[in-house]
Nucleic acid binder design. Structure first.
Lengths: 226, 226
DNA sequence: CGATTGGCGACTGTCGACAGTTTGGAATCG
DNA sequence: CGATTCCAAACTGTCGACAGTCGCCAATCG
């Protein structure tokens, strides 16, 4: 492939780091339950299986540790994060904390551009709810909520959200399926957008509390059953 | 270079992880401004100076990257995080977000044990304010606020706080001094404890908004002058 | 004289290897 | 037969080395 072709099709030349590739692989493997929760991961075996040396594996593992998908014990190695109901509630409580704040900030600077972008994302979510995979639905839902945070303009807030995003993916994936029929998605998210459009901070808070409360209840219940 | 001086005088390292030791050294060096903001850190040079190989240095740098003290550019290495006023406001806004939430949760479960522990910490802060170093004062202040978060029982919230703690240390250290006479410390923090004891959520929110607002104003102003 | 190209040096990404530690089970003892 | 000790295998922490890449500076060209 020639460079001009790569640029022409809008694709950035990315010799992606081995670290990132390994991190992506591990993330997928963990979320898709190919590794059991609490399972010990051997650096040498992973390196062998992936055909790379241990250095990138170690760095990727450290990355996932900072994202809460792995935990490390000194001299013992890395273990797949096992979430119990308590920690899961903690994660959703933190998510509530961040999104409440984001909405409180966002309602001050809400405009038609942002409203339009968010509405388009809800439309997209409804479309994928009809046909695509579960993981795709989850991903588009996370995109919507990430947009909410990003629109506040606070990068540090966004980073905090991105951090728990990985844990959220894990939580949600653990229960296997979402309650994602287009109707409930649309109503549930338009409620948020209406609250934002109204400019009423109190109403925004109620809307996000309800929205996340439903998701939390659903996931925690799902974990309890699993 | 200061690094070789630090470890060159026969100071043998063994007990703890090299990674943690290097991370501590780098953290201290960054906070104490021995590295200029934006400065590029050479892995080989650091490894030479500290008398270790590049592997622990790389892992420690990755750790500090996840804590926001370093930023990495692919194929170019690590750079000391340079905070401008905007990012600094973002950090304090996130801190406000977390502490507001913590107080809202804490006011529900506040009891005499927690009150006593917090009061003791304020007393300790007043003592240190009289004699100890600036960094010690900052540290004890952070301990107080960390206790607030920890008392909510939400570990994930605490981890998020610990993450920005490192950035906060950097921010505060950048302006070199604090407004830490015992009187203002006592009144400022007792206001928070009174609000908590009153059980009034609204009053708690006002108290923490004021408390953090003062700190933020002070630090942002300090940065502007520096 | 300004812009481009080529080469040099330094650095990061990655690798394989060694040493000390942990683990699980076999061998031993009460 | 159960508990303990000890040993070998496997693993992590750490190290030095090599290759590809990037930035800088000089040499070249218009």
């Amino acid at each position: 492939m020639t460079a001009s072709k790569a640029f022409g099709s809008g694709m950035v030349i990315q010799q992606r780091n081995l670290v990132e590739q390994v991190a992506d692989f591990l993330t997928q493997a963990i979320i898709s339950q190919q590794f059991a929760p609490g399972e010990r991961l051997s650096e040498v075996q992973l390196a062998r299986d992936l055909g790379v040396s241990r250095a990138p594996v170690r760095e990727a593992a450290r990355l996932l540790e900072s994202r809460g998908l792995l935990v490390s014990q000194p001299r013992r190695g890395f273990f797949v994060r096992a979430l119990d109901a308590s920690e899961l509630n903690d994660v959703f409580d933190l998510r509530l904390c961040l999104e409440r704040h984001a909405l409180a900030r966002l309602v001050e600077t809400y405009d038609t551009d942002k409203a339009q972008a968010l509405r388009r994302q809800v439309d997209l979510m409804c479309e994928v709810a009809l046909q695509d995979s579960e993981s795709r639905k989850i991903e588009e839902d996370l995109v919507f909520h990430r947009m909410l945070i990003a629109f506040t303009g606070n990068r540090r807030l966004l980073k905090a959200f991105d951090d728990i995003t990985h844990e959220l993916r894990l939580c949600i994936a653990l229960i296997g399926k979402t309650h994602a029929d287009p109707d409930s998605i649309a109503t549930s998210h338009w409620l948020l957008l209406d609250a934002l459009a109204s400019g009423d901070a109190e109403r925004c808070r109620e809307a996000i509390d309800y929205h996340i409360g439903v998701a939390q209840h659903y996931v925690v219940k799902g974990i309890g059953e699993a």
